[in-house]
């Protein structure tokens, strides 16, 4: 392993994060606060409780997932798209690094940022509603796994995209709907039966469900299944990244 290369890419990407620190932190804190004011206070005062948890607290895991998913995809896709766009990717392609090292560097940095973001949102949420985390280690585990898996997905999108529109379309058209329909703000059991079945094809359901279980021990699907689904998704993304670097897809002429 070329550890120095991984370190160089990781630090380079993190430097970009620090340069834009204000955007990176202020905007999620602001939007989370807005969600709490709208969903938690306005709607929550009518919904009251979901499966024994007060509504404001119930949506915290979903809210964190919503931001972590969109930010992972956005950051990782931009991180690799930008050098492709400016042409500086030539250096990465001519360096003695493997696909794994490149992916670890870029995805590691994007995932780190997402994890940080998740924790910041969690802290912000703590200001609005009482929080109870039943399994902190599992909570962190799910946060890490999700950040890594969706940063990998973002990385793939960044390589695939050949214009800024595509870079924005995928998060907007796929990730956001999947998250909203993935039980961020409600329990799947609240849906009509047909939609419950359809929802099981949405990978985000497994993430949110597992993540929520680590807080309140309530889940739409079994935690083991959640974990397996998350891992499966991660492996699928890894396989695609491996194939991309093997064939040079969208990277080499």
């Amino acid at each position: 392993m070329n550890w120095r290369a991984i370190r160089a890419i990781y630090l380079f990407e993190m430097a970009r994060t620090w340069r834009t620190l204000m955007q990176s932190i202020v905007s999620p804190v602001l939007s989370t606060s807005l969600y709490f004011i709208v969903f938690g206070a306005a709607i929550g005062s009518r919904i009251d409780q979901v499966e024994g948890v007060n509504y404001g607290s119930f949506i915290v895991p979903g809210l964190i997932m919503l931001s972590v998913l969109t930010q992972s995809v956005a950051n990782a896709s931009f991180g690799i798209y930008f050098p492709k766009f400016t042409g500086t990717i030539y250096e990465i392609l001519s360096a003695p690094v493997s696909f794994l090292e490149i992916a670890v560097g870029y995805v590691g940095a994007a995932a780190s940022k997402s994890i940080l973001l998740g924790l910041i949102i969690l802290a912000t949420a703590g200001l609005f509603v009482p929080l109870h985390i039943a399994h902190p280690v599992w909570m962190f585990g799910f946060l890490v796994l999700t950040s890594v898996a969706f940063s990998l997905l973002g990385f793939i999108i960044g390589i695939w995209a050949d214009g800024f529109e595509k870079l924005q379309v995928v998060p907007l058209l796929i990730i956001t709907p999947l998250t909203f329909l993935g039980g961020s703000f409600y329990s799947i059991s609240m849906l009509p039966p047909v939609w419950q079945t359809i929802a099981l094809f949405n990978p985000v359901v497994y993430l949110v469900s597992g993540f929520r279980w680590s807080f309140y021990e309530i889940a739409d699907v079994n935690v083991g299944v959640s974990l397996a689904a998350t891992f499966g998704f991660l492996l699928a993304c890894l396989a695609i990244v491996w194939w991309i670097f093997k064939t040079g897809y969208r990277l080499k002429a």
Binding site: A8, T86, T88, E91, P96
Partner: peptide
């Protein structure tokens, strides 16, 4: 390799971008 087209980072300093290259090549 010094390619024909000008491809450089934008917001990094000269020192950082050159040091980055060294790390990338495992030195």
């Amino acid at each position: 390799l010094v390619p024909q087209e000008l491809h450089t980072d934008a917001f990094e300093s000269v020192w950082d971008t050159v040091s980055f290259s060294r790390g990338l090549f495992g030195k």
